[in-house]
């Protein structure tokens, strides 16, 4: 609650043109914004670009931020849209999963776990962009279904449908069904 009030104060100051206040907001929200972009795009360089551009865009459109949602939610909307645009502009032949080099066959438990998590991250990158956005917001950013619907601007039913289909598809990709 204190954090939320702080954000409101900072957003108010930033809207008047206070860059110091915006600096604090950027530092506070950069990790989740970057993580969202990373899970959406799969490449660290692309994620950094998307996050950076999203913050610049946020600064320029702050007067349109009404404060009826949390600053984080508003940032998620901006960066998600940037990622969806970036994915739409990518050539379809561009392989995504090969951006993660497979680890060598190490029998250690740590390596095995890392390989499983990598398989999940790669699996997420094979999802259609809209399903991917919904799943990433729910599973990796920890938003409720209602919040995901707010970020994506679609109905709650549509969000639930996308997320369940995304989960099913992910399981199909990773575990398969026989």
């Amino acid at each position: 609650m204190i954090v939320e009030a702080d954000d409101r104060l900072l957003v108010g100051a930033a809207r008047r043109g206070d860059l110091e206040a915006f600096d604090v907001l950027v530092r506070r929200h950069q990790a989740p914004v970057y993580r969202l972009a990373l899970r959406m795009l799969g490449s660290e360089a692309d994620a950094e670009d998307a996050a950076q551009e999203a913050f610049v865009q946020a600064w320029r459109s702050l007067e349109r931020f009404r404060g009826d949602s949390a600053f984080a939610t508003w940032m998620y909307r901006i960066v998600t849209n940037r990622c969806l645009n970036a994915l739409a502009a990518r050539r379809p032949v561009e392989g995504l999963t090969d951006r993660y080099p497979e680890p060598a066959g190490d029998p250690a438990e740590v390596a095995e776990r890392r390989a499983r998590l990598r398989a999940v991250a790669d699996g997420v990158l094979t999802l259609p962009p809209e399903q991917r956005a919904a799943l990433v917001l729910r599973e990796f950013q920890g938003l409720s279904y209602e919040e995901v619907a707010q970020v994506l601007g679609v109905s709650l039913a549509a969000v639930k449908g996308r997320i369940h289909r995304a989960r099913l598809r992910l399981i199909e990709v990773i575990a398969g069904w026989e």
Binding site: D23, V26, Q30, R35, L38, E44, Q52
Partner: peptide, 12 residues
């Protein structure tokens, strides 16, 4: 997941 170290600095 940590943000790249100079992300905020470059934005600002």
């Amino acid at each position: 997941v940590v943000a790249p170290p100079d992300l905020a600095r470059r934005v600002m």
